[in-house]
Amino acid sequence: MSPIVELKRISKSYGAVKVFEGISLSVKPGEVVAVIGRSGSGKSTMLRCINGLERIQGGEIHVAGHCIKPETKNLQELRLDVGMVFQSYALFPHLTVRENITLAPRVVKKLRSEEADAVAASVLKSVGLIEKIDAYPDSLSGGQQQRVAIARALAMKPKVMLFDEVTSALDPELTGEVLKVMEELAAAGMTMILVTHEMRFAENIADTTVFMHKGKIWEEGASNELFTNPKTPELRGFIQA
């Protein structure tokens, strides 16, 4: 099967500071890839390059038939096919849950509001929050807000979902509900790339795990293999820490 996401020797720097160089990665449709590594190793930056939130300086990225090069300007088409969920939820505080979810379908995809509402209801059901459809974000718990953020991304019917440490801002007792939603999404066949500190989750859910270190993909492999049998001392040290 041909890959749905493919990074080809991409490099990224901020001015003179190199974050990474020559990174390549290939993700098949329906595959779940976990990205792990120490703080500052470039995990978020790599993820953000995939939907063009960060500009790359070299190489190219292919996502669901779109191509990003360093000079690519128009990213809107690509972003319609890639959903992203942030550590800080980033719900729009002045909009209800329904309005948060229907905003992009209405203004970007030009859906009629009944159609958009139907989409909102269906994605909210899938994250188990249909009863909160008219609530405002600040009346929800962190876990609920993050599930709404996932639903908001799903409402655009993306082909790939990106998750950047989506449970890191949550109290430990709330991470479970979010991880469960992600697990169901993975089981439903969504292509997912997730940066995470939840090693057990990566090991159990991700097909592939990528360990980033010093601006490189240091080690990469099937999750069960990589966690039980790390090849590099750096990964061994990271897992034990």
Partner: peptide
């Protein structure tokens, strides 16, 4: 306005103008 909200708008495919109009304006 938190940067993440603007980025959320971008990743949902909104244009700069739509982001100003729908995400930044009221808050």
């Amino acid at each position: 306005i938190p940067k993440a909200q603007i980025e959320a708008g971008l990743s949902l495919g909104l244009s700069r103008f739509q982001i100003i109009r729908h995400i930044i304006f009221i808050p």
